[in-house]
Amino acid sequence: MGTSHAHSSSTTDADLVHAAQAGDVSALGSLLIRHRPSLLAFAISLIGYGPDAEDAVQEACLIALRRLGELRDPAAAGSWLRTVVRNVCRMRYRARTDQPLDDGLAATLRSSEPDPTELVWQHATRDWVWHALADLSPPLRLVVMLRHFSSVTSYQDIADVCGVPVGTVRSRLHEARGKLSQALLATADAAHGDVRVVTGEWRRYSQDMVSAVYRGDVAAQLAVSWTPTVDIRGPHDLRNEGYGALVRGLEQDMLDGVGYRVTNVAASRDIVVCEFELRSPPEDPLHCPPGAAWVLHVRAGWVEQARLFQLRRQPVETA
């Protein structure tokens, strides 16, 4: 983490951006405090006065936190932030639906985007992000992790993962963004443990699990980390059977020739999101969905609850 510094009114936007990109979280907080009134006014001019405008600015703050490393012209930070707010407002005005937010920002960023989590790793604010997330309640933390740090981004998909209505997802995201935005604007700048250690451990664990599936000893792998009474919920009648049904399903996948590959892991203190690519056997290309995400609830190192979410297959266009 960067060291906290005082930022005077004579400090330019470019100075704040350079400091923030170097890991000074307080510089990012100062930048957002400086522009927040104009951003809120801009949002109100686009979608009217009310909680939606405030929520749009809060979401823009989180996007700025994640994407500041991509800003190529630090002197243009003000116009970049307004672009972020405009895209957030456009998505809300057009959809108020399940289209992922990041799609609306594609035009403002370089065309070949890294994985969302890689953006966080690229600058030292990552530890602040995850420390702030750890202060949220598990339900709030989960929706933020899914929305901003996984490919399960649509409101409906998040609702399916969490087992709650879409309206609840919206309200939880609103509350979580508000708390994170307040923490950021308060420039809570302290030394935090490096989240890469935790995430790296869970990524290795996920890869070991895939290897265990191929070796045929997945039951032994689960036994050292999942409680025997783990509550598993998902398709194919997995609910409340411990991991026996899961083991049988994975063993059958191997017999059928299904392939697995870990694509993303987002880990906090007690919630882990593990994403996998699934490859159907060549002779049966529609055998399985294109991917899956596990949401694991962990206590004292043991997985006590697991929710399996399968990605939807994109419809095939016909001539």
Score class of each variant (00 low, 15 high):
residue 169 V to C: 10
residue 248 R to N: 13
residue 135 D to S: 15
residue 137 S to Q: 10
residue 291 G to W: 00
residue 293 A to L: 13
residue 108 T to Y: 08
residue 271 I to R: 09
residue 3 T to N: 03
residue 218 V to M: 05
residue 97 T to W: 01
residue 15 D to K: 07
residue 50 G to Y: 10
residue 202 W to H: 14
residue 198 V to T: 12
residue 261 R to S: 08
residue 72 R to W: 01
residue 30 S to F: 01
residue 104 G to H: 14
residue 15 D to F: 03
residue 80 W to F: 12
residue 316 V to I: 15
residue 138 P to Q: 10
residue 10 S to P: 00
residue 8 S to R: 13
residue 113 E to T: 08
residue 234 G to I: 02
residue 105 L to R: 07
residue 303 V to N: 02
residue 273 V to L: 13
residue 185 L to Q: 07
residue 188 A to L: 14
residue 110 R to N: 09
residue 186 A to F: 00
residue 107 A to D: 13
residue 144 V to G: 00
residue 63 I to T: 05
residue 162 C to T: 09
residue 268 S to Q: 05
residue 222 L to E: 00
residue 160 D to W: 00
residue 119 L to T: 06
residue 216 G to H: 10
residue 93 Y to F: 10
residue 1 M to A: 13
residue 41 A to I: 02
residue 27 A to L: 08
residue 214 Y to Q: 09
residue 218 V to D: 03
residue 29 G to S: 11
residue 60 A to W: 02
residue 271 I to D: 05
residue 244 G to F: 04
residue 219 A to M: 00
residue 84 V to T: 12
residue 235 P to N: 07
residue 227 T to P: 05
residue 251 E to M: 06
residue 208 D to M: 11
residue 72 R to S: 15
residue 61 C to K: 05
residue 308 L to K: 09
residue 83 T to G: 15
residue 42 F to C: 04
residue 12 T to C: 10
residue 293 A to I: 01
residue 200 G to E: 03
residue 224 V to F: 04
residue 125 T to K: 06
residue 59 E to M: 10
residue 54 E to I: 13
residue 166 V to Y: 02
residue 307 R to Y: 07
residue 65 L to W: 05
residue 10 S to D: 12
residue 202 W to K: 03
residue 223 A to V: 02
residue 279 R to Y: 04
residue 75 A to T: 12
residue 170 R to Q: 13
residue 93 Y to I: 07
residue 226 W to H: 15
residue 22 A to R: 13
residue 312 R to D: 07
residue 273 V to Q: 02
residue 26 S to F: 06
residue 57 V to M: 06
residue 209 M to C: 11
residue 220 A to L: 04
residue 81 L to V: 03
residue 128 W to N: 03
residue 140 L to E: 08
residue 123 H to Q: 10
residue 32 L to S: 02
residue 192 H to G: 02
residue 274 C to M: 12
residue 62 L to K: 06
residue 40 L to A: 01
residue 317 E to W: 03
residue 273 V to M: 09
residue 238 L to F: 09
residue 131 H to I: 02
residue 253 D to N: 12
residue 56 A to K: 10
residue 128 W to S: 11
residue 306 A to K: 01
residue 179 K to Q: 15
residue 47 I to V: 13
residue 270 D to N: 15
residue 254 M to F: 02
residue 138 P to G: 11
residue 134 A to L: 02
residue 236 H to V: 13
residue 23 G to S: 11
residue 124 A to S: 15
residue 176 A to S: 11
residue 133 L to K: 05
residue 274 C to Q: 14
residue 308 L to I: 14
residue 173 L to K: 00
residue 60 A to K: 08
residue 316 V to Q: 13
residue 223 A to Q: 07
residue 23 G to W: 06
residue 49 Y to W: 04
residue 248 R to C: 03
residue 291 G to D: 03
residue 91 M to E: 14
residue 122 Q to S: 15
residue 176 A to V: 01
residue 125 T to F: 07
residue 189 D to N: 14
residue 117 T to I: 12
residue 215 R to E: 12
residue 201 E to I: 10
residue 130 W to I: 06
residue 312 R to W: 09
residue 275 E to A: 05
residue 231 D to R: 01
residue 183 A to H: 07
residue 258 V to W: 02
residue 129 V to F: 09
residue 290 P to N: 05
residue 38 S to Y: 01
residue 191 A to C: 04
residue 9 S to G: 12
residue 197 V to S: 12
residue 239 R to F: 09
residue 186 A to T: 11
residue 52 D to P: 08
